[in-house]
């Protein structure tokens, strides 16, 4: 390190570095990020690290209690279910279905919402007002109800759940992105860029998207927590993932009739859903606070 600074230099961090600095100051947000990354990693590598086959039914080991009780086996840390399937392996595998699928649906809804939101935000007049009314209509219908109706039309199943949830998330993305674009379009620097001869496409890609992407990430984090809860809820109502698939919500409803015999098989999947949603909410909250503090500083 140099001891003396000959010239007075003003240090400017990039906006991203400032954001990270404010984000890293919040312990809860960092904890959320760590939890989120581990869920992300698990959902990618889950099929390779399960200690047992999640679908294998060991009929000599039915309803084995968790390993911390007297009768448990250490090879089956959380015990087995009523068909003798290892609970830990099923939970690990379930990360892909609940968390991973939620991530995929949110990314799908985000991309579609970005296209439609840009279309709605950049257009004016009749087209945009028609769009507004359509969105107002869909936004009034609760997202889970919309998903349930879509599942009722398409029929239950994991793939249909994904379609239903991403379709149900789409309106709020379009709405949020359109509002964010409208807000940016009013600013002077957009006018200046237009006076330089930029067309709509250039304004959108070079000015607006770089300026709203942080907002979009916060929006996505809220959508992701909704998506996890909706997928799990549909699984719980047995409208989503069907019987052998170890989706967390479906696992809870499968072991519901065993709740007196094996309370852990209801408690642990629920705890995982809670942890997954919590991690997403903590990251989203941390980002929001960090953005606010960066603006103030």
């Amino acid at each position: 390190m140099r001891k003396f600074r000959l010239y007075f230099e003003e240090q400017h961090r990039s906006p991203l570095a400032q954001l990270w600095r404010e984000f890293a100051r919040q312990h809860s947000a960092l904890f959320g990020l760590a939890l989120f990354s581990s869920f992300l990693l698990l959902s990618l590598v889950a099929p390779f690290i399960t200690p047992h086959d999640p679908y294998l039914q060991a009929d000599n080991l039915l309803l084995l209690p968790p390993s911390w009780s007297e009768q448990g086996l250490v090879q089956y840390p959380f015990g087995t279910d009523d068909l003798g399937r290892d609970l830990l392996s099923r939970l690990l595998k379930g990360t892909t279905f609940t968390f991973g699928l939620a991530l995929v649906t949110v990314i799908g809804a985000l991309l579609a919402g970005l296209a439609l939101g840009a279309l709605a935000g950049m257009s004016q007049g009749m087209k945009s007002s028609f769009f507004n009314h359509l969105l107002d209509l869909i936004l009034t219908i609760p997202s889970l109800l919309l998903a349930i109706i879509i599942v009722a039309v398409l029929g239950p199943g994991l793939a249909n759940t994904a379609w239903a949830v991403s379709l149900a998330l789409l309106p709020q993305f379009v709405h949020g992105i359109r509002n964010a674009i409208n807000e940016q379009l009013k600013k002077d620097y957009v006018t200046a860029y237009r006076l330089d001869g930029a067309n709509n496409w250039q304004v959108l890609t070079r000015l607006i998207i770089p300026n709203i992407w942080e907002k979009i990430i916060v929006m996505s984090s809220m959508a992701l927590s909704t998506a996890i809860l909706d997928i799990a809820a549909l699984g719980f109502l047995s409208l989503g993932a069907q019987a052998p698939i170890p989706e967390w919500g479906a696992m809870i409803s499968d072991s519901l009739d065993l709740i007196y015999l094996a309370p852990a098989s209801v408690a642990i999947p629920g705890l995982l859903i809670f942890a997954a949603v919590l991690s997403v909410n903590l990251v989203g909250d941390g980002l929001k606070t960090a953005m606010q503090r960066r603006r103030e500083s």
Partner: peptide, 18 residues
């Protein structure tokens, strides 16, 4: 509050029933 709005409602209901 953060914990409260992360709770999956069906699990929360089952816990309270238990």
């Amino acid at each position: 509050t953060v914990a409260g709005y992360s709770l999956p409602v069906f699990w929360w209901a089952l816990l309270l029933i238990m």
